[in-house]
Write a protein that binds this DNA or RNA. Sequence first.
DNA 1: TATATTTAAGATATAAGAGTCTTATTTCTT
DNA 2: AAGAAATAAGACTCTTATATCTTAAATATA
Lengths: 151, 151
Amino acid sequence: MIISKTCDHAIRAALYVALHEDRAYVTIREISEHLGLSFHFLTKILQALTQKGIMTSFKGPNGGVSLARPAQSISIKEIVVAIDGEALFSGCMLGLDTCNDDHPCPLHQQWANLRDQLETLFTQTTLAYLADRIRREGLRLANFEAVSLVS
Amino acid sequence: MIISKTCDHAIRAALYVALHEDRAYVTIREISEHLGLSFHFLTKILQALTQKGIMTSFKGPNGGVSLARPAQSISIKEIVVAIDGEALFSGCMLGLDTCNDDHPCPLHQQWANLRDQLETLFTQTTLAYLADRIRREGLRLANFEAVSLVS
DNA sequence: TATATTTAAGATATAAGAGTCTTATTTCTT
DNA sequence: AAGAAATAAGACTCTTATATCTTAAATATA
């Protein structure tokens, strides 16, 4: 797949938190249960997002995680870069590390074009936009019915 | 990266063979040396392409591999599917296996659009087209100078 | 102050991808 | 017929991604 499993977990968790922006903190336990993800694994993933300044966390009772900034200002790209790195938006499709505009591989130009579109999409797509659509259209964030998510 | 390392090796090797379509067979040893890939690893990869009917092989002296069909009729997509499977062209960006048009994830539509473009690109891009551009424009297939390839 | 609740951190385990090595098997050449 | 040259096949190793488990640290509440 185009992003790692770790990264898709991160995006889905961030969306879950964005859907509950009204609450000060959401526990990782709750997120993991609603999304069907391993609690411990999700903890590590969200630690990374916290270290990258995308989320903030708070220990102890009533603690949990929350978005470090308004959902409107956090793009999907930020999360992808935080977890998977820049490679998706800069790498050569054939994995050649000396491939560049001056010495391109045969797929360089075509891939660069698509990659730019992907980057634009990821940059423009914010957590707020997606959360809004999830609310309005009841889109799914997990492999089970959407209803259970917004509760 | 968007395709596996195995898959990019496969594409590059197929292009090398396409560049030498005049020869009955090209040895895997020669391909591996010109592309800077492990001989044994490449052998396994090309075995897969042979089993999928994309290449043919011949044992013994003067043996090697060659394209099973004219380079014009082999698309990059065929190779990607042979090695990495259909996932890239059908999977959900968030990895949800129940995501579909009726019950989409929040990124479903946008990703479907880009994915279709990717599929079109990969379907329309043939080994012949790329080999032609490599010849004319001296594009690179390896992490070293293009010249050494066409020899 | 003690206890429960929560994230942080690090060690460990499992699975998959990537890569290597050895031994067939086929075919050509002498 | 023998030996050399090539791919085929399978076992094996190494690395990275994924996942789990345990202990520590912080905070609230009784």
